[in-house]
Amino acid sequence: MDQEKLYMKQCRNGDKEAFFKLVEPLLSRVYSTSAAILRSSHLAEDAVQNALLEAYQAIMNGKNIRNFKSWFNHLTACRALDLARQRSKLASRTGDLEEIEVPDEQASPIDALIRKEAGHELLESVMSLDINHRTVVILYYYQELSLDEIADVLDVKKGTIKSRLHAARLKLNEKMMQPNPKQVMEC
């Protein structure tokens, strides 16, 4: 029996620590993805919390979950998108994305700095996309969902996902090729 199945079985038997062991390694990533989709750390916390509650209930109700990591990533992305839809209906898009970074233990300090700067520029570019393009990029590249899974999450056709992803790549390429005003001023 693999570790995920063992933790789910222990959880069903009343071991609350087993649920924590199951989800804890996934929390940083799903939070980062939710924050990127929602552009709000507070809403990201809500999305993750909603997903945690739903995951716990699913386990306790005996739902057959073959790959918990993949299922939980998908579930959290869905909850973030639910909040994004609610938010877009209720108010303009305001909020802030706190810097979210996962340290690279293997990199030298200069490599880490260069990677951080490049990653920050890319993240800024991704975050500047409209919600449709931003969402497909985040789900595809950060959550590593397949095109079919993204189509299911967003409830649109796979061709629409391909089109949005292509358009998002073009927009990102255009943004990344433009000179950075900060760098131009420093010269």
Rank of each mutant, 00 (worst) to 15 (best):
L83I: 04
W71F: 03
T76V: 01
K21A: 08
F68D: 13
I59A: 03
E98Y: 00
L53T: 00
N64E: 12
N73G: 01
L81Y: 15
K63V: 14
P103V: 11
A47M: 04
L75S: 06
L43W: 10
P103T: 13
G62Y: 07
Q49R: 04
V102H: 11
L81T: 04
P103N: 03
S92C: 13
E45A: 01
K21M: 11
L52E: 08
A55T: 08
S108I: 06
E45R: 06
D82Q: 14
L43Q: 14
K21I: 08
L83G: 02
I110L: 10
D96G: 15
S28L: 09
D82K: 10
L27P: 13
K69T: 10
N67K: 15
N73W: 13
A36V: 07
C78H: 12
T94A: 12
E24D: 11
A36L: 13
S88Q: 13
C78N: 14
R85F: 02
S108G: 04
S32W: 09
H42K: 13
Q106P: 03
V30Y: 05
N50F: 03
S40R: 01
Q57C: 06
I100E: 13
L26F: 01
A51H: 05
K21C: 04
E24M: 15
P25Q: 00
A55F: 06
D82S: 09
A44E: 07
H42M: 07
I65F: 09
D96A: 11
A55I: 02
A107P: 00
L83E: 02
R85P: 13
H74A: 10
D96Y: 15
L52Q: 00
K63D: 09
L90H: 10
Q86H: 11
T76F: 00
D46H: 06
M60Y: 04
Q106T: 02
S40D: 12
F72C: 01
L38I: 15
R93G: 05
